[in-house]
Write a protein that binds this DNA or RNA. Structure first.
Lengths: 346, 346
DNA sequence: CTGAAAGCGCTTACAG
DNA sequence: CTGAAAGCGCTTACAG
């Protein structure tokens, strides 16, 4: 905690008995411009720098045009553990490529959110990942600021013209779950959506994957096996009981794929209230693979969003854009394949 | 995504028809040094700056001695949702005080961890919060670097001479849980520790709170109601069954306070395996208040670590230290009061 | 290799 | 208020 003046490059140069220019070049290895530093000189400079605990002043390097190695991440202030899991994955990926993460939050107040993005831009942070809820109302000022970042990646859907986007193939995930359930001998696999697919594209993706899985492309046969709520989240007890009535009691389902893990867990409770055994009488599959999934009783079979691939794709897109690589419309979107995680509930 | 040259202060000054010095002062309000800017002039400069979307270059401001408004947070690479919840709380608190967060991770490799801290220091980030596992082996190089940060806050226990620390009053939390259980008519409240209190001070804290709660200061009467594991985490089925045998079957407990939520959930499963109803025959209380706590069946009564107060205390200490305020030994440690969250399991 | 110098974009005394 | 200048700590041409 001692207060001391940080050593400067000129201090190192002086002690090493070389010019500032040579010290600068020696510390970053190789040769720059017309300056070529011999091995023994370079080694000496580095030794002195180490002994003095020299750390280059990044503000000065920045001012001279050093490329910025910080990625900004904007996450919703109301974010749940699921988003932080994704954040951690991005940290790992960014770290591996020599990048740091600075986090910001979308606050309810657009002015505050704008303040954050302005702050990033002021720092010269040109790369931003937005954990932006696709259903969140978008403020024009915020959108304008986002459009000014050099590299921008959204999750699920891009909200800015020309920006990149990483999405999870929800349809494939649900399809995999359905196929798995049928392969395990379930005869009537149902789908519980927390909102109507007609108005919520994330739900429509699940419906599409479901219909592909049960081999009913036009959805004629599956009508009684697809239930959708009104978007209320988390669902009330009445809504859950209603879903169980519709799908299991009346629809005869012996398996349910839920919109997410919370729905899955709540459906399991509702099934038990009806005296139904999980997974004996009805299997349940979630979506998200929450960290707590393994702790539930029964532990949750679920679709993992594959944060590792998500992070890799997001950082790939960011760095490609920063490099100035021109990306086609198709290249700007990356789709990550989720993976079924089998536990006890199905 | 347009590539453009960011406007500089001199551009703003030129367009507004004032000197650079006046522009600089006008944008930051009031008057600095000998320069005093009139209201109408200041307003004009600000208007021009806004129209040009001027954003001061922070690297340049930094170089001129602007105080840094970034707090670094080091978290374990193996961090769970619990730590990220705390991180989010710190973000909120820091944001409210005009500070940003940059996150780094402790990696297994000490060299990598050192790289991160060096990076923070190089950026001039003098404030660091360390989510450092108190049982994690401490590398001398890492410790040395940590000691060089101007303001340093650890969780649970400080690992650096003179650094600050925010701790949660585990004893008070457990005591509150015990008191609550006794007040609800439980007669034999037990304590399940995942490691021996003799070797793990975090467990000893719980034991102390427990003994205070049951009014058995020297622990004579409670011997059969305290069980401790060998530190294995998460616990195996055999270990859990053993704990239930010891505390409930042989010890006659009708309530158990667990070391954390995961243990609590696993104990509930073990109790059920023995045919015991929770909370009917045995009540169970956790510790941590995991986000998923409300989803378990029965939902978990638990001790919340109070991240809001934790974050406030951590940022308080950081900013006080940055201000150069001399803190006494006592002032350097802040203890946060946890809160019992009552749900169904007890 | 050296040494002296320019310049990144600001802030801040300084003389008018 | 203005205008010119110094300087934060670097990097990088430039002339030897």
């Amino acid at each position: 905690m001692m207060q001391f003046r940080a050593p400067r490059l000129s201090d190192v140069a002086e002690r090493a008995g070389v010019s500032i220019a040579v010290a600068s070049v020696a510390l970053r290895g190789g040769s720059r411009g017309t300056i070529r530093v011999g091995d023994k000189t370079a080694e000496k400079v580095r030794r002195v720098a180490r002994r003095m605990q020299f750390r280059p002043n990044m503000a000065a390097q920045m001012l001279k045009g050093r490329k910025h190695d910080v990625i900004g991440v904007m996450i919703g202030a109301e974010s749940t553990a699921a988003n932080y899991g994704r954040l951690a994955a991005i940290e790992r990926e960014a770290y591996g490529r020599g990048y740091r993460l600075m986090i910001g939050q979308f606050h309810n107040d657009a002015a505050h959110t704008a303040g954050y993005i302005n702050d990033f831009l002021s720092r010269g942070i040109g790369a931003l990942v937005c954990f932006h809820n696709p259903l969140m109302p978008s403020n024009p000022e915020v959108m304008d600021l986002l459009a000014q970042t050099r590299a921008l990646v959204f999750q699920t859907v891009s909200l800015v013209q020309g920006a990149c986007c990483v999405d999870v193939d929800r349809a494939a995930g649900v399809r995999e779950a359905v196929t798995y359930l049928l392969g395990r001998g379930r005869r009537r696999v149902a789908l519980a959506l927390n909102a109507a697919p007609e108005t919520d594209s994330l739900m429509e993706d699940r419906r599409r994957g479901y219909l592909a899985g049960v081999g009913d492309p036009d959805g004629e046969r599956s009508r009684s096996l697809i239930w959708s709520g009104t978007g209320e989240f988390p669902p009330s007890r009445e809504v859950l009981d209603g879903a169980v009535d519709a799908l299991v009691v009346r629809g005869g389902a012996d398996a349910i794929v839920a919109s997410n893990d919370i729905w899955a867990v709540d459906l399991i409770k509702a099934l038990r209230r009806r005296g139904l055994d999980v997974p004996g009488e009805v299997a349940v599959v979630g979506f998200d693979n929450l960290e707590a999934g393994a702790l539930f009783d029964p532990s949750l079979t679920t679709i993992d969003q594959n944060n590792v691939d998500f992070a890799r794709a997001a950082v790939d897109l960011l760095l490609a854009t920063l490099d100035g690589k021109p990306l086609s419309r198709a290249e700007r979107t990356r789709v990550v394949q989720p993976k079924l995680v089998v536990r006890e509930s199905a």
